[in-house]
């Protein structure tokens, strides 16, 4: 038919090798985090929870995880509110002004995070906010808004606008029509935006690196400064925790996109 069997098996072998390349590093890190040895050997000589215990007993790790969770929740909620409102405002508006505003809102997705980080640092340094929770939250919101605009915008584009029209014709007030018809229809897009914003915030390193101080830093910033020193299984334990948070959010997102076909997107600035 298409290709001789040898070609096909060569392609399968290559795809299997690429799959191992993509997935194995994370799997190995997770296994090493349960090691009972202080060496990063694989397979580990024995299994234990000592590195997780040491994480829980170190105030710096505990504080940084708390900071990251706070920033994540505040970012996700605020970015979803701002992004959803903006997507509603942009819906069915065409023209050069609309295109300009859309570009403005989407810009943080395209501009390399190293530039965003330096610029946001410049702003908050002038305001004396570096090392504060609000600086981290505001910085992360700016990066997360475009994700929400994209997912809610996509949901608005695919929904049937005649349904809202029908509700209005049947005597619903604009507010009721929005709450009872439009909002339920775009809810998957809003939830997807919320999850993307949360994932982005929890994983974010570069902007956080500029805005953190030893007194107040996210878990990725603390992991970064540890990775630059001597690496040990404790870092693989924190890496596993970070992976776990991402995977839980991804699983929720995967489930949602299975259901309603919300696009899986990823910014290119990272």
């Amino acid at each position: 038919m298409t290709a001789p069997w040898a070609w096909r098996w060569a392609a399968y072998a290559l795809v299997a090798a690429i799959s191992v390349y993509l997935v194995a590093p994370m799997a190995i890190i997770v296994v090493i985090s349960f090691s009972d040895s202080a060496l990063l050997t694989f397979p580990p000589p024995g299994l234990s929870l000592r590195w997780y215990r040491s994480l829980a007993e170190t105030p710096a790790w505990r504080d940084s995880i708390l900071v990251s969770l706070q920033v994540m929740v505040l970012t996700a909620v605020a970015a979803t509110a701002l992004g959803t409102a903006a997507a509603l405002g942009l819906a069915s508006w065409r023209g050069p002004l609309a295109a300009t505003i859309r570009s403005l809102l989407m810009a943080p997705l395209v501009i390399p995070h190293i530039i965003s980080g330096a610029a946001i640092f410049l702003l908050f340094d002038a305001w004396g906010w570096v090392g504060s929770l609000q600086a981290l939250v505001l910085g992360h919101i700016a990066l997360a808004v475009p994700y929400v605009v994209a997912t809610v915008g996509a949901a608005l584009e695919t929904m049937d606008h005649r349904l809202t029209q029908a509700a209005l014709t049947l005597g619903a007030s604009p507010r009721i029509a929005f709450m009872r018809v439009t909002l339920p229809l775009i809810r998957p897009g809003i939830l997807a935006g919320l999850l993307f914003a949360a994932m982005l915030s929890f994983d974010e390193l570069i902007v956080s690196l500029f805005l953190s101080t030893p007194q107040l830093r996210t878990v990725t910033v603390l992991m970064w400064s540890n990775v630059l020193g001597d690496i040990d299984p404790e870092i693989s334990a924190i890496a596993t925790v970070i992976l776990l948070v991402s995977m839980v959010l991804l699983a929720l997102q995967w489930f949602l996109s299975r259901q309603r076909g919300v696009p899986v997107l990823q910014g290119i600035g990272r």
Binding site: S19, L22, V23, P25, M26, I28, I29, I32, L40, M199, D203, L205, T220, M223, W224, V227, I231, I235, S236, A239, I242, L243, S246, M247, L249, L250, W254, V264, Q266, R270
Partner: peptide, 22 residues
């Protein structure tokens, strides 16, 4: 297989490669 690394922290993945490639 593509999506899981796609949405994992780049810091975590770079750290993993440091461990693997030492």
């Amino acid at each position: 297989v593509v999506l899981v690394p796609f949405w994992s922290s780049i810091l975590v993945r770079s750290f993993a490669w440091m461990v693997l490639l030492q």
